[in-house]
Design a binder for these strands. Structure first.
Lengths: 185, 185
DNA sequence: GTCTATACTATGATAGAC
DNA sequence: GTCTATCATAGTATAGAC
C-alpha cells in the first residue's frame, strides 16, 4: 500500500515547512496523516531521518516544478525571475506567513546535525539554482549566470525568512524589485 | 550573581545558532554552561522561551556591532557592505560552516510557533536593516535605501543557508559580488 | 532571601510482540 | 502490518539548602 506511505510523506512535507525538523514529532505526523501508529517503521525502516529526507526531496521537486513553469512565462529573464518571486510572495501571504520555503528550516537545523539531511537539502538547492542559471546563461554567460542564480536563491530564501518574521510581503517584494534592477541593466 | 545568568545566555546563543530552538535542550544548555539544573527557573522564571528571547537579543546586538564597525571601514557603501559580507563569509568558514546567522534558524522555527520569539527575531532584523539603510540613504534616497537594505539582509541570510548546506563559501561570495554590482552602478 | 537538587508529567523516537 | 511497550529526554515546578 503505497498510498499510505505517500500520505505520510505529504504530511511530513507540510509540517517540516511550518515547524522545522525537531519540532515535528512522529506522533503528530501519524495522527495528521491518519496512518496507523505502528506503521511508520514498516514504511521507513530508518526512522525519522529517512522520512524527512524523502519529504525534502518531494518538496524540492515541487518547487522545481514551480520554477520551471514560471521561467517559461517570459523570454526576458528579469521578468521571468521576478514573476516567480512575486507569485511566491502571494503564496506566502495566502498561507498566513506559515508556508514558503519548504526546506529552509530543515536546511539550517540539519546543516550541522545530520549529514544525510544536509545533503538532501543541498541537492534541492543545486537543482533550483541550475534552473535559474540555465535561464540566465544566454544573456550573462555561464560564470555570471551561476553567481546570479546563487544570489537569487539566497535572496528568496532570506526574503521568506524576513517576510515570515515581519508577517509582511514587503521584504520579498523589495527583493523582487532589486533583482529586477540587477537583471534589467 | 549575574555572571552565571550571563553564562547561560551565552551558551544558549551558541547552541541556537548551530542547532536552532527545538533541537537545543535545556539540559544541554545547563551542562555546557556549567550551571546547576535547578537554577534555570530562578534566572528565567518563564522558562525556555524567555531564555531564548534574551539570547536572540544578545546575538542580534552582537551582529549589529559587527555591521556598524564594518560600515565605518569605507565611505563607499558598496565597498563597506561587501566588506562586511566577505568578513562574515570568513567567519562562517572558520567555524566549520556551523556558525553564522545566529538567529536564522530560530526565526524560521518560531515564526509560526511562538509570537514572542518571532517578535524578538523581527526586532533584530529591523535593527540590522536600519544600519544598512542609513549607510545607503545619502546615495540612494530613503525609499531605495530601505529596499536595498532588505535585499542585503535577505541575501546574507539566504547566503548563509546555502553556504552551510554546501559547506562552501561560494554562495556567500557570489552574493557579495552581485551586491557590489548592484550598489556599484 | 538567593540559589539548587530532585521529582514530575509529557512526549520524543524506537523496536519487539502479536 | 499494526499495537503496545520501552527507554530516553524534554520542559517544568516545588521543596528545601545555604
Amino acid at each position: 500500500m503505497t498510498a499510505k506511505r505517500d500520505e505520510i510523506i505529504a504530511t511530513t512535507c507540510e509540517l517540516l515547512e511550518v515547524q522545522g525538523y525537531h519540532a515535528t514529532g512522529l506522533n503528530r505526523i501519524l495522527q495528521e496523516s491518519g496512518a496507523p501508529k505502528g506503521s511508520l517503521y514498516h514504511y521507513f525502516p530508518e526512522g525519522k531521518e529517512e522520512l524527512a529526507a524523502e519529504a525534502i526531496a518531494r518538496s524540492g521537486a515541487g518547487i522545481a516544478g514551480h520554477i520551471e513553469r514560471a521561467l517559461l512565462e517570459s523570454d526576458d529573464p528579469a521578468e521571468a525571475v521576478t514573476g516567480f518571486i512575486r507569485a511566491l510572495a502571494g503564496h506566502v501571504a495566502a498561507s498566513g506567513y506559515r508556508q514558503g520555503g519548504p526546506i529552509t528550516a530543515v536546511a539550517l537545523e540539519a546543516a550541522s546535525t545530520s549529514e544525510r539531511l544536509r545533503l538532501a537539502c543541498r541537492d534541492q538547492y543545486r537543482g533550483w539554482q541550475a534552473l535559474f542559471a540555465a535561464k540566465l546563461r544566454p544573456r550573462y554567460g555561464p560564470a555570471r549566470a551561476d553567481r546570479l542564480a546563487a544570489l537569487i536563491i539566497a535572496a528568496i530564501e532570506g526574503g521568506i525568512i524576513l517576510a515570515r518574521s515581519e508577517r509582511s510581503l514587503q521584504p520579498l517584494l523589495a527583493v523582487a524589485e532589486e533583482i529586477e534592477v540587477l537583471l534589467g541593466g
